[in-house]
Design a protein around this nucleic acid. Structure first.
Lengths: 129, 129, 129, 129
DNA sequence: GTGGTCTAGACCACT
DNA sequence: GTGGTCTAGACCACT
């Protein structure tokens, strides 16, 4: 079962963070078609946010065709998001973790790392738009 | 001179994106004390956003002590954000770029990469909260 | 400017009625790309419903790609729904109005007419599914 | 025996759709006093909905005095809803079907037709409110 | 119990 | 002023 978390102070609205986390989990193969998301009320209780906020996230997922709420039953994953095969992904991930460890060892803090990552990611992206 | 950009649809308010970009540039050593930021009008015109939005970002930077507006002259960087020495950073950056290139070559798209990066970054962070 | 109305007691949720009315107006050529919908607050005030309910309808239209909210400006039609040319539609409409008048003259009330219409419409539809 | 159907995605709750269908059938003379409705179980099985939903519809019909459940026997129509004599209704219906056929032939799809019909019906109604 | 709709009202971002 | 997010809480439909 996916474990949601919400970070305040990022400027990203909480409902949006939940949507992003489900999308990420689908891409990484941590969630699959048919999986059940935690109930609206449970997420609201655990993250100490309003049930309507969770509902909004789930409705957004529904609009994207990724999940579907079934009253009385729960909310279920309807469609996956293709990514690489698990093995290839695991390899890339291991390499990235090595890089991260090196960066921390070199004395960077996570804000600095985030800044570096964001910059590099952005510089590679524009060509895709 | 820093080149701002605004991505709509991310949920992050534009003024906040501008602030974040200045902070990142400071951390990476792309902006230094005394540097002048582009004028409010110029940013507004180039990004096609309201001048008040830019003004809000610059005011936020003032509140953080990072920049200072001098009427008639422009807005200037007041304080830097320490990061690693340029050389060490360049090395880490080169490694990260290599990783990125590998990921793209393996067939990942930028959303997939963003998902992987976000996940790995988050897993290393919790200890800081 | 479209004139919304909400009928209670039909079982159709109000936000849904608003969405349906916009779609109908688009099909009939009463609304066009670029047209501005009445503001959330105005609709809420006139229909004596909550602004959030109107907002929900507008968001639904946005998800369907039919409208787009622009903070500070209003909500605008983004895409039309093709229908017949106005003239052909006007002709069909005139014929339908004649039929309706005949039905009323024969002594049917609007519930009876609605029942007849719903039944006939349903019997012609199934083949399309 | 009446043939129920439930359309999802219309916003109208299923139990309400069942009630409406019985009322329509009564108005059109397709159901008469003493007729037996299909059993709750049968309807639930055929429409793949929960028996409680069907039960709720039947109870609603009882409240309206239109039907009456007789334990062990079934649910029976108690009262009709007056409409026009069958012949007059058949004539009106034939005319409406001709109109419908013309509309389809002209190239309208059922959503377009539904939009036109709803609009015309509403414009004739206001005087009743 | 589970998702869905709605209200009332606060507060924010953008024009 | 205009749309957008969130909270708190009531009530409904479905399982």
């Amino acid at each position: 079962m996916i474990e949601f978390r919400v970070e305040v102070g990022t400027g990203v609205p909480p409902y949006r963070q939940l949507v992003d986390q489900v999308e990420r989990a689908l891409r990484l193969g941590h969630l699959h078609v048919g999986d059940r998301l935690p109930t609206v009320k449970e997420v609201a209780r655990r993250l100490v946010i309003n049930p309507n906020t969770v509902l909004k996230a789930y409705r957004e997922l529904e609009h994207k065709g990724l999940a579907k709420g079934r009253p009385g039953l729960g909310t279920f994953i309807e469609r996956g998001l293709d990514g690489l095969p698990a093995e290839q992904q695991a390899e890339l991930r291991a390499d990235l973790e090595k890089w991260l460890a090196t960066a921390y060892r070199a004395g960077m803090d996570s804000d600095g790392i985030a800044a570096l990552v964001a910059t590099v990611l952005h510089e590679f992206r524009p060509e895709e738009n």
